[in-house]
Each structure stands twice: as C-alpha cells, then as structure tokens.
Computed example of a mutant assay.
Amino acid sequence: MRLPVRATRVEFTALEIAELRRHFQRGPSKGEVAVESLFTAVSPGTEGAVFKSLPNAVRAFPYPPGYSGVGVVKKSGRGTSIKPGELVAGQLGHSSLTNVPEAELIRYEQSADHVYMSFVELGCIVQQGIRKAHVRLGDHVAILGTGLLGQLSVSYAHLLGAGKITLVGRSTRRKVSSSEHLPEHDYLVVGEDGTVETKADLVIECVGTPEAVIQAIGLSRDGGTVINLGSPRNSISLLAITNLIASKSVKLKGAHISTLPKSTVNFDDLSKIDERKVFRHLISDGLLSMPEIETVPTNANVNVNMAYERLNRGTIPTTVVFEW
C-alpha cells in the first residue's frame, strides 16, 4: 500500500493569482518515479497565457502549472530502471514532489548546472524548430520575439553557424540583457507600422500571435523559411496567410513539442528522449549560452505570486526558476 505524503505545489487559484498549496501526493505507480524537485523552470509564454486566461489558454481553476524541471528520485515504482538518489530532468510541474513516468525523464550528472538543466523541456521545443529550419553555415536567421524561446533560439542559431542573427522585439527592454548573455546578434525593434527592415533566409517566430506570424513572413526573403514555434494564442486567417505565403514563395513550418515522435525517425524527427539527451549534452559541455535567469525560492506565497506578476508586467528580463 502506497501511503500519500504531504507536498507543496504552485496553483493558479483564480485569474492572475498564484499560490503555494499543500496537497497529498500518492506513491509512484508502475512505470513512474517519485521526484523531489530541485528547480523548475517557468515557461513565460504558456504559463503566462494561462495565468491571464488568454484565448486558447483558458483552464479551470485551481490549475497546477509547470512542465520542465530537475530533481532527485526519492522512490521508484515497479518496472522502472531509474533508482532512488539519481538526478533526473524532464516533465516536472511546479511541485516539491511529483510522480513522473520514467519515459518523460532522463538522468544527468551532478557536474551539470541544475538551473540550466531545468529548462530541458523548453530546450526541446526550440531544438525541434531549429531542426526544421535547416540552418546552414552563413545563413541570416531572424528571430521574432525576445522572450525565453527567442533568446534560446539565438544561442542555437549561433551553434549551427548562422552568419548573421537578428533578434526582433517590440521594444528595447531586453536589449541590454540579451547582449550581455547571448552570442553576438543584431537587435531590431518593430516599427509603428508593424514592419522591420530586414530580409532573412530563415525566420523563427516565437511570439504566438496571428500578427506575429504575418510579421515573420514579412521578415523572410522571397523563397525563405518561417518556423512557427508553439501554439498561436488566437485564430489566424488562413486566407491572409496563404496569400502572403504564395506572394513570397515562403515555406511555413510548425514546431510543437506534442508532435515529437515516440522513436527517432531521422535528424529532423528526434524523439523527445533523444532531444532531451541533446540538451543535456549542450548544457553539460557548456556549449549553449543561456539567457538571464532569476531564481525564486518557494518559501512564501508572496514570492510565487510576485514572480508571475513581474513576468506579466515585463519587469523580469527573461524568466524565473523556482527553487524547492
């Protein structure tokens, strides 16, 4: 018999209200391991949208957010190979103790940076998009969106040998932070008419709005490629998009973590487990430049709610990591 134990987790209890709440966590079932969290990374786009109940992100409250983190295995369920005491990274919510299917985790070594490893799931999202972009040596890569996914995309484009990288945002708010923490890149601001004077071989769209998709196509040269990371927050006029794509002969590709295959097919279609292993390698070997990150202790409600409020207001440079 698996007796439940007390645990603490973050919950959105109402519109724009985040709280730390106690709950009882059952023991791990077959194929699961119980993970005691060390750090869990906040996804500003997804969690921020749910926090504010934006279109396509409305959830019933209370809602427990989070899907990326690291921790120590406390107990292993039947049929698992991961043992108690091992460090793991993967699909962890913002909770002090979580039962996670073994298939959603990878092991990692103590020498790796725990905070950086907590971004493993977000890294997988960007890696999938970068793979589909087929970055070639010397390519001009434009990245629309200066948040977490956009800044990670700068680092990946640099790793793959992009000749020029242009980060495009709505304001200069993240210009200093990105220049201090990321590889060399240009930083452009969208004009009042919604346009930017640049034409790139590849465009990575990391904003998730219909307007951003249209802007991304506008940033592409004729015959270029546009990658749409994640899920748009509103419906998009297919007619407007189709006409714009046709006028520029642009390739538009979607990249969503839910479409990753269970088993690796080829270089373009790695499984989620293999994508996690790639991220682990990049972090363990210090190859991936990470954006500015703020660590927030989960020892008080005020810390948790304030973190989401500050993300909502844009007063945190990129994102936060909860420390458990």
Rank of each mutant, 00 (worst) to 15 (best):
R6K: 08
V10D: 02
E11G: 06
T13Y: 06
T13H: 14
R21V: 11
H23E: 06
F24E: 07
R26F: 01
K30T: 09
G31K: 11
E36Y: 06
L38N: 03
V42C: 07
P44D: 06
L54G: 09
P55I: 10
P55T: 00
P62E: 07
V70E: 01
K74Q: 07
T80N: 00
L92S: 09
G93W: 07
E104D: 04
L105V: 08
S111Y: 11
A112M: 08
A112F: 05
V115I: 05
Y116I: 10
Y116E: 15
I130T: 14
L137S: 12
D139C: 02
I143V: 06
L144T: 12
L160K: 09
A162D: 07
R174N: 05
K175I: 09
V176Q: 05
S179K: 15
H181V: 06
L182Q: 10
L182T: 14
V190H: 14
E192W: 12
E192Y: 13
V196W: 05
T198E: 09
D201V: 02
A212S: 06
I214M: 08
I217H: 14
G223C: 12
L229W: 00
S231L: 13
I245Y: 09
A246N: 11
A246I: 10
S249L: 13
K251E: 12
T259I: 08
L260F: 02
L260H: 04
F267P: 10
F267L: 11
I273A: 14
I273P: 01
V278S: 01
I283K: 00
I283C: 03
G286R: 04
G286F: 03
I293K: 15
V296W: 08
V296S: 13
V302F: 10
V304R: 08
L311E: 11
N312S: 15
T319A: 08
